[in-house]
Design a protein around this nucleic acid. Sequence first.
DNA 1: GTCTATATCTCGATAGAC
DNA 2: GTCTATCGAGATATAGAC
Lengths: 208, 208
Amino acid sequence: MAESEAYTETEEQVFEAALEVFSCKGKDGARMQEIADRAGINKAMLHYYFRSKDRLYEAVFDYVFTRFMLSLSEALGGEASFEDTLRTFVDRYLTFHKEHPAVMRLWVQENLAGAPVVRQKLRAYGQRAEEAPPYIFIRKMKAAIDAGEIRAVDPFQTFVTIIGASVFYFLAFPTMSVLNPALAEDPEAAFEARKEHLYDLLYHGLKA
Amino acid sequence: MAESEAYTETEEQVFEAALEVFSCKGKDGARMQEIADRAGINKAMLHYYFRSKDRLYEAVFDYVFTRFMLSLSEALGGEASFEDTLRTFVDRYLTFHKEHPAVMRLWVQENLAGAPVVRQKLRAYGQRAEEAPPYIFIRKMKAAIDAGEIRAVDPFQTFVTIIGASVFYFLAFPTMSVLNPALAEDPEAAFEARKEHLYDLLYHGLKA
DNA sequence: GTCTATATCTCGATAGAC
DNA sequence: GTCTATCGAGATATAGAC
């Protein structure tokens, strides 16, 4: 797994299957049999490749974590004004979760269990922390405050709010679509409305 | 269970124990033995009272759902200006989750599984929906928009944002406290800062 | 109602043939 | 590497004495 950068086709199939099952049912609720079935391989082979459920779970986390961080970094890459940075970030962040809903679910499962794996991975990020997306955002926002572009609002709190208001939309969908059936009737329109709302509220909430 | 409005002392002990275990480990991860131990009763008695794990889970949901709705209703009860309503709501909502962290976790577990129980309960609320907290908030916000007190921002989206930015703070705590160790060093101060930030951002984001 | 002992079953993991 | 068959741990649920 660690030797080559890329994954084999079978590994990818297993990861996608495992991600889906782990993220919906949790580590305890997930069944190795179901993962094997979805990946189209034998249950014994699953153990042959990954030894145990715990190791498979961690391998799935590695598989997901890198892609997620990379996607965030890209969304924060440019040298635009803070207004543009904010719009791009909200757009890209929401879009990522729309396209990869299992990633958010897996992360939530982790946090409900105290996030042992996430905490370990983040700490391992350690030295390169400065390049991690949260710090990039916070640094850019601080600069915008110093430049008088926006009000002096706490950048970390703002980061939490953006991530939270985004993630929550997908997490709460099953509940919210009962309160507001329009969400389920036209998810695409609802998604666009969500993006627009979030940017609008943040823009007016932060502007000087 | 359904006959009398109140619960016996033993039932309450079981519910509190079950809530803690279900909310942390999920329905599948939860162990009847652990719930029994925490409640200080025999495992066989747990089955004697509630027949099965599924029934216990649903009973816990009833136990929590009512209190939560009631607390929200109270937080939205007064006839104050929208500015005051907003401040009170943010304050009370965040405080509720700080004092009852398991409620949020249980609700999150539900949503990861597609929220079958929540959806059923909400639909059962049906006729009385007008009195349900989300609709109260939305109605008050609409009135404030019509009165020119605040900008014309979508009330449902705003509701989702407030709930999301609040719930997420507690949900993401294990992850966020690695990124910002201050959270864990002084949780009380961090909580107050969160409340202040959220109200401030919403106030400026909504004001006319 | 309460407890011990146990039936029954499910699942992770492995042995062993091919 | 791949499969079938199975072991053994541990869980829900219940039977039956008190």
